[in-house]
Design a protein around this nucleic acid. Structure first.
Lengths: 133, 133
DNA sequence: TTATTATTGCAACTCATTTTCATTAAGCGC
DNA sequence: GCGCTTAATGAAAATGAGTTGCAATAATAA
């Protein structure tokens, strides 16, 4: 049968995400991971992230440029982000306008929804002020 | 001053999008464009798409894998898509749950919203049926 | 401890998108 | 139409996120 092995690399990836106060890209996770296991491979980070995502422990979003970011899938909260185009700061935005609409949207077309991706882009307060000066 | 030149390549990219009944990726546009101008460069397609997007004439979305797709920015309609993970079919989904919420979401944090990205992923009716067999 | 095999490290690869730079061609004034 | 300026192009190389093949390693069950 399938044997999900609990390797130290997998634990590390998960703990890095747990200890982060914001979502991280695979690259960021890799750079952090190296500090703990200098020999860890990029592919290992990617494979573990994929596994964690399909296992539902981690959720995945997309930056404007197509790069993925990851965060612990809140046991209940399902949140999205406002992302600053300037400093890339990500502001949590807990209400999900989709949750209440998915059923209705899908039913019409027989579409089976498995998830969605939602990000709001713009400029945070600080960067917005800087632009005015 | 800035001279936005109206090249035949730019017109072509725009007309391909106008004549398409669905959003197209840069790669698809490039492959179509070659039929008209065999020497057109991929970079030219990308540059024109970028220009059209920042000019607001074309809007841009993201596939799950980070690849961008483009469509004419409806003069009034602002629509999103349900994208099939299997056949990549894109089903229009005209209501935008964000339009009514952006103000409220942004005000709290002083965030200045410039746009958003929203895609719903899942399986279309056909692909869903195939999986069951 | 040992056998099994999931997972790893590493290097090579894919593929969308970007960049560099010499060449071409819009759009301007004449 | 003619020439000039320079934005835009084509071609090729580069970038960078993510993937893949494979031999070596290490997490589990026996």
């Amino acid at each position: 049968m399938s044997e999900a092995r609990n390797t130290k690399q997998k634990k590390l990836v998960l703990s890095l995400l747990k200890n982060s106060d914001r979502p991280l890209t695979a690259g960021e996770i890799y750079r952090l991971a190296i500090r703990h296991f200098p020999k860890i491979a990029k592919s290992t980070v990617y494979r573990n992230l994929d596994a964690l995502v399909s296992r539902g422990e981690v959720s995945q979003g997309l930056h404007q440029n197509g790069e993925s970011f990851y965060s612990i899938a809140g046991e209940h909260s399902h949140s999205h982000y406002m992302i600053c185009r300037e400093c890339r700061q990500m502001i949590d935005f807990p209400q999900c306008p989709l949750s209440s609409m998915e059923r209705g949207i899908a039913d019409a077309s027989g579409f089976h929804i498995t998830g969605h991706s939602l990000q709001i882009y713009g400029y945070c307060k600080d960067c917005n002020n800087k632009k005015k000066n």
